[in-house]
């Protein structure tokens, strides 16, 4: 662990690269995109419920 910290401390370019890679990884997990997934699930259960209660939808 100490060695890794030393390596990063000595290499600003590596720090920047790793920082950016980490940031890119979590960008797809913003609350906005996570909630878009959630609202798509809402739509699924709403549609399923409508289908179940509507006699015309068979």
């Amino acid at each position: 662990m100490r060695e890794y910290v030393r390596t990063l401390a000595a290499d600003p370019a590596l720090r920047a690269r790793m920082g950016e890679a980490g940031r890119r990884r979590v960008l797809s997990r913003t609350w906005e995109s996570v909630c878009i997934d959630l609202f798509a699930r809402y739509e699924e259960v709403i549609a399923a419920r409508r289908q179940a209660t509507s006699p015309m939808s068979a």
């Binding site: 940031r23 979590v26 997990r29 913003t30 906005e32 996570v34 909630c35 997934d37 699930r41």
Partner: peptide, 10 residues
């Protein structure tokens, strides 16, 4: 069941 991950506050 389905998977739903939590968000990360960037």
């Amino acid at each position: 069941l389905a998977l739903w991950g939590r968000g990360v506050d960037v």
